[in-house]
């Protein structure tokens, strides 16, 4: 196993691929509901990775990433409507590129601004996207949105691998989970390489110290625009994956609330870390389970006013408490504990 220590890129590749393969193996044994839950979290992991790249690694913050996700999702649906024979991977790439382009256009003026101004502008952008989509109904299907012409369905080899008694729905759910895991795996892989690359280091330098970054000859505006564009591309990919796994897109899926959810999950998981993004996705995936546990154990009627808002109240409060007391989130807490264990030895 010596080569693992020598080449970090190879090591990352091996670690990521083996985790993905192991998780894919798990999709065969876990109940179908778990596969659907995993699928739900996958797109969110990618969206957090994107926001993380902007916030954690370049110090900018966006409250409008749902807008870019909408570009990816509707890009996917519209492409498939007109070119139904387009392969899934090509559709995803094109939708991601569309969102990256939107990111570039917003990023050029936005990244001239710092902190709160940039956040405000992304909020304005994110809030403007859903009404825009609703009103371009000939293209986007209006308030009802669009059904996808093609969705990933389980290939025959997978169906024959499972017992004949397994229902097609179950096999398809498993396939969607495998498909999502694959996309997440690629996204994580690319992101960790980006993190280790010159660009990644440049971004962190910009975040930590503008002046130092300029002194070493970084082109600050270009670095910021690049970070914004890459971040929007990830959001677009997340939107596209969401569209494929849900089978439909609607402007109501991409309201400002989603942007806030992604921001919250990023902070809870841990800003600037890949493990934090994955944690964030898992929290999202299981938040409904957690909520039903919460309503059951407290006896709150889930359909009452309180019950139907309990999730937002809980996570909104948790976000504030996290930022005030442990701003590095769960992964920050974990590495703190590890550091303590290590020093106490």
């Amino acid at each position: 196993m010596n080569f693992l220590r020598q080449n970090t890129t190879t090591r990352r590749l091996v670690v990521t691929v083996s985790s993905i393969v192991a998780l894919m193996g798990l999709t065969f044994v876990v109940p179908p509901i778990t596969n659907s839950t995993l699928t739900r979290g996958a797109a969110i992991v990618i969206a957090i990775l994107g926001l993380n790249f902007l916030t954690g690694w370049s110090g900018q913050v966006s409250i409008g990433h749902a807008g870019f996700m909408a570009f990816g999702a509707f890009g996917t649906a519209i492409l498939l409507k007109h070119f139904s024979s387009l392969p899934i991977a090509a559709t995803m790439l094109l939708a991601t590129a569309l969102s990256a382009l939107a990111g570039l256009l917003v990023g050029i003026p936005a990244t001239r601004l710092s902190g709160p101004y940039l956040a405000g502008m992304t909020l304005a952008f994110g809030a403007a996207v859903p009404p825009l989509i609703q009103n371009l109904s000939s293209l986007t299907g209006g308030p009802a949105g669009l059904q996808l012409e093609t969705i990933p369905t389980a290939p025959s080899w997978l169906r024959s691998l499972r017992h004949d008694t397994t229902s097609l729905i179950t096999v398809n759910a498993q396939w969607l989970a495998m498909f999502s895991l694959l996309v997440v795996g690629v996204a994580v892989m690319l992101m960790s390489n980006l993190h280790a690359s010159r660009t990644g280091r440049a971004m962190r330098l910009v975040r930590d110290n503008d002046v130092a970054a300029e002194l070493v000859g970084l082109n600050l505006p270009r670095t910021r625009v690049l970070a914004f564009t890459i971040s929007a591309a990830y959001a677009g990919l997340a939107g596209s994956l969401m569209a494929f796994t849900k089978g439909s897109v609607s402007p109501q899926d991409f309201l400002v609330g989603l942007s806030i959810t992604i921001l919250s999950l990023m902070v809870l998981g841990g800003i600037g870390t890949i493990s934090g993004a994955i944690l964030g996705g898992v929290i999202y995936a299981y938040s409904d389970n957690f909520l039903s546990w919460l309503t059951n154990s407290t006896g709150i009627d889930p359909y009452s006013n309180l019950g139907s808002n309990l999730k937002t109240i809980f996570f909104g409060g948790l976000l504030i408490v996290t930022m005030l007391t442990a701003p590095r989130g769960i992964s920050g807490l974990i590495s703190k504990v590890f550091a303590k264990v290590r020093t106490s030895r």
């Binding site: 916030t55 110090g59 913050v61 409250i63 710092s114 902190g115 709160p116 956040a119 609330g257 806030i260 921001l263 919250s264 902070v267 800003i271 006013n305 309180l306 139907s308 808002n309 309990l310 937002t312 109240i313 996570f315 909104g316 409060g317 976000l319 504030i320 930022m323 005030l324 701003p327």
Partner: peptide, 21 residues
């Protein structure tokens, strides 16, 4: 910068949810 932004955004969603509750 990001700390007050995140806290106030969290407060925004918290207040809206509490109002709805």
């Amino acid at each position: 910068d990001i700390n007050p932004i995140v806290v106030m955004v969290g407060f925004l969603s918290l207040l809206e949810a509490i109002a709805a509750a």
